[in-house]
Design a binder for these strands. Structure first.
Lengths: 245, 245
DNA sequence: ACCTGAACACCGTTCAAGT
DNA sequence: ACCTGAACACCGTTCAAGT
């Protein structure tokens, strides 16, 4: 256990994981993921590229640390949800608590340039990521859901959030300098002759109100979860519904 | 319009987009996305790397063509759904048709190594991608959903599917030769002292029955959608539910 | 018209050697 | 103990020149 984070007897180190991740995240905001190279980061820290490898085994290791750090601000939301459920004051409010956690994750990923891509490309298992998961599971189990349902709901929420933010950030970036942005290309490609239903729906599909899109998907998930207890399988629920007309 | 795909007066071309994408997808299965380089692909086609740029403006362009091709097999499912809804025989069966479309997309992405990463990293707007979207919208509009709901449901389904398959493929790959795979690292990191709820749920969370995980998320979405008509907003539905206890 | 050959401007990573 | 310098084995992309 004599890693570079140990007391240090000699010269004070110029580098350390925390400062390096900070700088890397700033650089990410400046230049984007594709231009975030070890050499450029080393430059920003007034060091040679090779020196970074004393603190991060690989570039992937650095990106994982960056991903983990991005969820730092989630701690507040997570503990808020945890204490709320602990008090059982708002046990019936699980839906809103879960939504708050999901929104906080979306916000955290959107807060940095290419944040979703960084997070999706790594698999952080640090305290922020685990704390978030713990909070989500806590809300669900307190609300009375089973272990399986809770775990799978966590997955669904995270996957939806990652998928959504990935597209949201892709839609905003001008796709490499020239050429049309994402929604514009879709507008051009969706020929009303061949894809009439799709074309008719383009205004919504290419709308930039991403928050509304996210809320819709989230509400479907939460609503489905609410129904789960009344109609054991959603197939049954769909049947009940279709029997109505 | 005298692209390389024109009749060709001189020597028959060794290269063309279709053959190149085929080879690239085979190579992808062999070596994975990280090792899929223009030079390696050129080698597989017995050509110099620079020659590829007569057919693809950038590597991103090639990857987009690969992503689009990956959805080729979806055409069958999509037209099946389309004709089913056209006959209005199974208009009440929209839930199952939508599920079939989502499953087909998951299957298509899983069919190739790193398929989800390739698809998520590009933004295909070819006939397979648009045909899929058209089919989804068709099912929803035929079932009576509004334009906004249909468009946003399409997004939610696609985002959940991409997010899920991204994690599914990440969980299977051995994370770069050595070190633990994804679920194993989670098991090691989820300390029962600090994350008791999470730890209690690890068996499900690290279960490799990904199909079941996907079905759960999908059913939440579809179930939520089914409830949408009865209780205009899901918030209301959640309220109704929590009033029950 | 299509491809080669060679170059340009980079990468991530390693590791002896210095301080 | 921490970092430099230099190298290794690559990248994506461009473009004159050949056929």
């Amino acid at each position: 256990m004599s890693s570079p984070s140990t007391p240090a007897r000699g010269r004070p180190a110029r580098l350390d994981r925390t400062r390096t991740v900070d700088t890397a995240l700033d650089l990410l905001d400046e230049v984007g993921l594709d231009a975030l190279t070890m050499r450029r980061l080393a430059d920003a820290m007034d060091v040679q590229a090779g020196a970074l490898y004393r603190y991060f085994a690989t570039k992937g290791d650095l990106l994982t640390a960056m991903a983990e750090r991005m969820l730092a601000d989630l701690a507040a939301t997570a503990t808020a949800a945890a204490t709320a459920t602990a008090k059982t004051e708002g046990a019936g409010d699980w839906s809103e608590q879960l939504a708050a956690l999901a929104r906080a994750m979306r916000t955290a990923l959107l807060a940095r340039r290419d944040g979703a891509r960084v997070y999706a490309g790594t698999h952080a298992t640090g305290p922020h990521t685990l704390g978030f998961a713990e909070a989500v599971i806590g809300v669900l189990r307190t609300a009375g859901f089973g272990a399986e349902e809770a775990a799978r709901t966590l997955m669904a929420v995270v996957h939806l959030t990652i998928g959504h933010t990935l597209e949201e950030q892709a839609a905003l970036r001008p796709v490499g300098g020239e050429g049309a942005a994402d929604p514009e290309r879709l507008r051009l490609a969706a020929d009303p002759e061949r894809y009439p239903r799709l074309a008719a729906v383009l205004p919504t599909l290419t709308s930039e109100d991403f928050a509304a899109h996210f809320e819709f998907g989230l509400s479907l998930l939460l609503c489905g979860l609410g129904t789960l207890d009344r109609a054991p399988t959603c197939g049954d629920a769909a049947e009940i519904y279709s029997r109505g007309d």
